[in-house]
Simulated scan of single mutants.
Amino acid sequence: MKAAVLKKLTTPLAVEQIADPEIGTGEVIVDVAAAPVLPYAGEVFDGTRQDPIELPIVPGCGAIGRVRAFGPDATHLTIGDWVFCDPTVRSRDDARMPDITLQGWSARGEGGLRLQRHYHDGAFAERIRVPTENAIRIGEIAPQDAAAWCAVNTMLVPYGGWLAANLEAGEIALVSGATGNFGSAAVAVALAMGARCVIAPGRNAQALDDLARHFGDRVRTVALTGDEAQDRQRMMQASPDAIDCVMDILPPSVSTKTVRAAAMAVRPYGRVVLMGGVGMLGGDDLALPYPWIMRNDITVRGKWMYPPEAVTRIAGLVHAGLLRLDHFDTTVFALDNVNDAVTHAAANGGPFRMTVLVP
C-alpha cells in the first residue's frame, strides 16, 4: 500500500509503497477514506514539540474509513461499515490505570511507548490497523462527506473536556483559548450540548468576530488585554449569569496568567477543566490560590483526550443536526502531496479550518 513515512525529524515525509498491515486477534483493518492533518503536525515532525515518537513511523492521528477486515472478537462490525479510527489507544491489561498512546503520533510514558511499538503506524496511508474497540461505527455517511467528518477528530477533544466538567444543558461555559483550533471547536460542542451561553475570550479580533458570526447571541466574545484582573472582570461581565464551568485549552506558548484569569472567573461551586499545553515547553507553573479553591468549593481537574464512548455520542450529535460539520472550511490534499498538506495546515490552523488527506 501507499503511505507517507517520517524517517527522520526535520526531513520531509517520504511517500512510498510499504507492506499492508496484517490483522491479528482483537484488531481491525480499515481502508482510510480521509485523515486530518493537525495544525501543529509540522512541530511534531521537526521535533519542536518533543513528543515521544519512535522512527520510522507512518504518522497520522485519527481517520474516517470503512472496515476492510476484522478479527473473531468483533460481533457487530460488518465489512464496509463507516468507522472513526480513534487514535487514543489504551492498554487492555489494567482497566484502572491504562497506558495510553496516540496511534501514529505520540506516547505517554514507558508503557505508552511499548503500546506504540505495536500500534505504531497512523492514518497517513491507504490502510490502517487499529484495536477492535478503536474502530467505532459512526453510521452511514456519503463517501464525499468523509473529509468533512474528520472534524469529529478535532471536536472530540473538547467534548471529552465538557464530559469531564459535567456540562449540563442550560449552563454557562467559558472556553479559555476560544480562538484556536480546539478552542473554537469547544465553543461549537458546548452549544450542541445545550449550553445556554459560551463566553469566548481571545486576542484575535477576526477570530472572535467569526465566532459571533457562526453562533450569534449564544456566544459572548471578550477581547483580552493582557491584564489578568481586568480580563477576568471582563469575562464575568460578559456573561448573562454566573459562569458554571471553564475549560482551558490554550497552547504551550501562552502565559499561565491567561489561564488563571479565565479559571478564576468561574462561580463558587463551579468546575475548571485543564486540557491545554501551557507549561509544557517551560515557563511558570499554574498557581491557583488555595483559599479560593477551598472556600468556594471549586473542582479543578485535568483531562487528556476523551472516553471511548464519546465517539458514538458525538456522532449522534452530528446525525441529529445539533453539531454541524459545515462550520469547517475543509481543504483536501492527495496523499502524494502530504508535505504540502502539512505546510497548509500550519498556515491555516485557525477556527473552523481543517486540512485533510484523502489517500
Rank of each mutant, 00 (worst) to 15 (best):
A95H: 15
L115D: 00
E110M: 06
Q116T: 07
R108C: 10
G109N: 04
M97C: 13
P98A: 09
R96V: 14
R114E: 08
T101W: 00
A123M: 10
D121A: 07
Q103L: 11
G109Q: 08
R108M: 12
Y119H: 07
R117N: 14
M97L: 15
S106D: 02
H120G: 05
H118Y: 13
G111T: 01
G104Q: 09
W105K: 06
L115Y: 00
M97G: 08
G112L: 05
S91E: 03
F124R: 02
L115R: 00
S91K: 01
L113P: 10
R90E: 13
H118L: 01
G122V: 02
L115E: 01
A107R: 03
M97H: 15
G122C: 10
S106H: 03
H118W: 14
D99L: 03
D121F: 08
R90N: 05
D93Q: 12
A95F: 09
L115I: 10
Q116G: 09
A123E: 10
W105M: 10
S106Y: 05
D121T: 04
I100S: 04
W105L: 12
G109H: 07
H120A: 05
R114K: 15
T101M: 03
R92N: 11
T101R: 02
Y119D: 00
A107F: 04
R96W: 12
D121R: 08
D93M: 09
W105R: 10
A125H: 02
R114Q: 12
G111H: 00
E110F: 03
T101G: 00
L113G: 02
V89D: 01
R108W: 14
W105V: 04
L113K: 11
L115F: 04
D93V: 14
L102A: 05
S106W: 04
V89P: 00
G104I: 06
R96F: 13
E110K: 10
A107L: 03
T101F: 00
V89G: 00
M97D: 13
S91N: 07
L102F: 14
H120V: 05
R117V: 05
H120T: 06
E110L: 11
D94W: 14
H118R: 15
R96I: 14
D94S: 13
V89N: 00
V89H: 01
L113Q: 10
G112Q: 02
L102G: 04
G112F: 01
